[in-house]
C-alpha cells in the first residue's frame, strides 16, 4: 500500500472548478515538487494535504487512513511568510511543539522534561545552523535565518509529511541556494516525505525526486472556470541522474491524464 494516496480528488468553489481528477500515489521518502502557472491550484492542493481545506470530491489517504479535516501534528508546514512566534526566542520557538506535547494544560514544561526537550530542540537548531542564534528573538534574525527556524520548528515534531509552500520565495538568491542545500540535506538525514510548491523550475528539478506539473488540460474561453487544473506531467526524477536535469523523464503510469504536454 502506498504511503499517500490521492483518489479522484476534486476541488470546486461554487461554479469554479479549481482542481479535477487528481489520482496518484506517493511513496514514503519522496520529495515532490509542484510547479505550474499561478492560480492553477498548487497551493489549494497543498492546503488540502494540510487539512486547511477539504476536497469537494474524492479522498486523500495517509498510511491508509483518511486525512483529518483540520491541521495536525502528522503534517508539518513551512509557509513563504515567516510563521514564527515573536514572543519566543529561537530555541523556544523550536521547543514549543515538544512542550505542548508533554504538557496538555500549561503547554510549558519544567525540570528534567524541559532539559530533555531543550537538548532535542538545540540539536534540531544546530542541524539548521542556528545554534549561535538560539537566544535571539525572531525579529532579530534575517529572512533566511527565520525560514531555517521555521523549518526546524516543523521538523522537530517529526511530521509524516512536510509541506513547503514557496518556502524560499521571499529570500535573496544567495540564501535561497543555501536553503536548497539545507533542505536537501535534511530530507536525506530525516528521510522526509515532502511536498514543495515552487515557481522556480530549476529548483523543482534540483530538489525533487518527483515533479508534478499542474495545469489545465481543457479550457473553455467562454467560461474560464468551467474546467480545473490537474496534473499534466508526473515526472520521476532519477536521483542518480540528477546531472542530466530534466532529460531523464520517467513517465508514471499511475497518472490517468490522457494529454501529456512537453514541459
Amino acid at each position: 500500500m502506498s504511503y499517500l494516496q490521492i483518489r479522484n480528488v476534486w476541488k470546486t468553489y461554487e461554479e469554479n472548478v479549481i482542481l479535477e481528477k487528481l489520482n496518484f500515489t506517493i511513496e514514503k521518502g519522496e520529495f515532490c515538487t509542484l510547479i505550474g502557472p499561478s492560480g492553477c491550484g498548487k497551493s489549494t492542493f497543498l492546503r488540502m494535504l494540510l487539512g486547511q481545506d477539504t476536497p469537494s470530491r474524492g479522498t486523500i489517504l495517509l498510511e491508509g487512513e483518511p486525512l483529518s479535516n483540520e491541521p495536525g501534528s502528522d503534517r508539518g508546514v513551512v509557509f513563504q511568510k515567516y510563521t514564527l512566534f515573536p514572543h519566543l526566542r529561537a530555541l523556544e520557538n523550536v521547543m514549543l511543539g515538544l512542550e505542548m506535547e508533554h504538557s496538555a494544560f500549561l503547554g510549558k514544561t519544567f525540570g528534567s522534561t524541559r532539559r530533555r526537550i531543550k537538548a532535542e530542540a538545540m540539536e534540531m537548531l544546530s542541524s539548521v545552523g542556528l545554534e549561535q542564534s538560539a537566544r535571539k528573538y525572531p525579529s532579530e534574525l534575517s529572512g533566511g535565518m527565520q525560514q531555517r527556524l521555521s523549518i526546524a520548528q516543523a521538523l522537530v515534531k517529526k511530521p509524516k509529511i512536510l509541506l513547503l509552500d514557496e518556502p524560499f520565495g521571499a529570500l535573496d538568491p544567495g540564501s535561497r541556494s543555501d536553503m536548497q542545500e539545507l533542505v536537501k540535506g535534511l530530507w536525506k538525514q530525516y528521510g522526509l516525505t515532502a511536498f514543495m510548491v515552487t515557481h522556480d523550475v530549476k529548483e523543482a528539478f534540483e530538489l525533487g525526486t518527483r515533479l508534478l506539473v499542474f495545469d489545465k488540460v481543457r479550457n473553455d474561453p467562454q467560461s474560464p472556470n468551467a474546467f480545473g487544473a490537474t496534473i499534466v506531467n508526473d515526472i520521476k526524477l532519477d536521483k542518480n541522474k540528477r546531472k542530466n536535469k530534466g532529460e531523464e523523464h520517467v513517465k508514471n503510469n499511475e497518472t490517468t491524464i490522457a494529454t501529456e504536454r512537453p514541459l
Binding site: L50, S73, R75, F79, L96, S150, A154
Partner: peptide, 23 residues
Amino acid sequence: LSEELLIKVQTLGASTWQIILRV
C-alpha cells in the same frame, strides 16, 4: 494573528487551550 501562524501552531499539535495560552 495571521491564519498561517494559527495553522502552523496546529501542525505543532496544539489544542485550542494551548493556542490561547501560548500564542
